[in-house]
C-alpha cells in the first residue's frame, strides 16, 4: 500500500499544495519582487469574471456532451457485442482499436485531418465545414468540435469495451428472466440492463472526465494554443504559460476541483456502495 500511496499522493501533494498557495498570492512571472499573499482575492475576482463563467459553462458542456456521447455509443456497442454472432470477434477488435491506437499521437493526426493546414483534396470541403460550424458557434468552434469528436471516438471505444466486460460480469439469468417477463426490448433495457450496468457506467464516466481533459491539453499544446474556445483548463495554461499570471492560472485550475470532487462523491455512491450485510 505504502509505495503506491506515496507515488500517487506524494507526487500530487506538492503540485496541489503549490497551486493552492499560488492561488492565494499575486504570483506572476512578470511581477517585480516576490509573490504577496492576497488571501481569497483571486477567487473573488474569478467569481466576478464573466469570462470565467463562460469558460466554466463551456467546460461543463464539453464534459457533459462528450460523456453522454461516449456512454450512448459505449452502451450501444457493448450490447451489440454481447450478443453472439459470427462477426463478433472481428468487430470486437475493430471497436477496441480506437482506444488501443495510441491516443496521444492519433489526436495529432486526427486534428490535422479535420483542420488541414495545407491544400489537400478535401481542404475546401473541410474549410466549408469549419466556416459553417464557426459561423454558428463562434470562432474556434470547429477546432474545438474536432477535439470533442476525437475524445468521443476514442473514449466511446474504451467505454464500450469496459461495459462489455461489465455485461459479462452480470449473470445471464438476469437477462433471460427479463426476456421471459418483459414486453419489449426497450422496457428490458430500462428496467434491467441499465440499472445493472449503472455502477460500471459510473466508473466509466469518471475515467471519461480525465481523458476529456487530457485530450484538450494534448491538442492545445500541439497547436500552440490554437484552441481559442474558452475552457477552464486551457485558459489556465494560457494565463500561466503565455502571460505568466501564475496566481490566476492556479485559481482557474483549482476552481474545477470542487466540481469534480462533487461528481466523484456522487459516482462513488454508484460504483462503490457499502454492501449491506446479509440477514
Amino acid at each position: 500500500m505504502a509505495p503506491a500511496g506515496a507515488l500517487v499522493l506524494g507526487i500530487l501533494a506538492y503540485p496541489v499544495a503549490w497551486e493552492i498557495w499560488a492561488s492565494l498570492t499575486d504570483f506572476s512571472s512578470r511581477a517585480e519582487g516576490g509573490p504577496v499573499f492576497v488571501g481569497l482575492a483571486n477567487y473573488g475576482r474569478l467569481l466576478g469574471d464573466t469570462w470565467f463563467w463562460k469558460a466554466l459553462a463551456t467546460t461543463l458542456g464539453y464534459l457533459a456532451v462528450t460523456t453522454t456521447a461516449k456512454l450512448v455509443l459505449g452502451v450501444g456497442m457493448a450490447l451489440l457485442l454481447a450478443r453472439p454472432s459470427r462477426l463478433r470477434a472481428l468487430v470486437f477488435l475493430a471497436v477496441f482499436l480506437p482506444w488501443a491506437y495510441p491516443g496521444g499521437i492519433t489526436v495529432i493526426a486526427w486534428y490535422w485531418m479535420l483542420n488541414p493546414p495545407l491544400i489537400t483534396s478535401y481542404s475546401v470541403f473541410m474549410g466549408n465545414v469549419k466556416h459553417a460550424v464557426d459561423g454558428v458557434l463562434g470562432a474556434g468552434a470547429w477546432a474545438f468540435l474536432s477535439v470533442m469528436l476525437f475524445n468521443v471516438w476514442r473514449g466511446g471505444s474504451f467505454t464500450a469495451v469496459f461495459l462489455l466486460a461489465g455485461l459479462n460480469a452480470i449473470p445471464t439469468e438476469l437477462f433471460e428472466y427479463a426476456r421471459l417477463e418483459s414486453r419489449s426490448a426497450w422496457q428490458r433495457f430500462r428496467a434491467v440492463t441499465l440499472p445493472l450496468l449503472a455502477p460500471y457506467m459510473a466508473l466509466a464516466v469518471f475515467l471519461s472526465f480525465t481523458t476529456a481533459f487530457a485530450d484538450l491539453g494534448n491538442v492545445w499544446m500541439l497547436t500552440g494554443g490554437r484552441i481559442i474556445f474558452p475552457v477552464v483548463g486551457t485558459y489556465a495554461y494560457w494565463l500561466a504559460v503565455k502571460s505568466g499570471q501564475l496566481a490566476e492560472a492556479a485559481t482557474w485550475t483549482l476552481a474545477l476541483v470542487p466540481l469534480l470532487a462533487l461528481g466523484l462523491v456522487v459516482l462513488f455512491r454508484w460504483f462503490d456502495p457499502h454492501e449491506e450485510t446479509p440477514a
Binding site: 439469468e173 428472466y177 421471459l180 417477463e181 418483459s182 414486453r183 428496467a191 445493472l196
Partner: peptide
C-alpha cells in the same frame, strides 16, 4: 409461462417486492 432459475436470477437493485412484482409491472 414462468420460470425459476438455478441462481434465482433476482435483481440485486430491486427489493423483494419489486422483484416479485417485476413481471406484472412489465405487463
Amino acid at each position: 409461462i414462468a420460470m425459476v432459475f438455478q441462481n434465482y436470477a433476482l435483481y440485486p437493485h430491486m427489493t423483494v417486492y419489486d422483484n416479485m412484482a417485476f413481471g406484472l409491472k412489465m405487463r
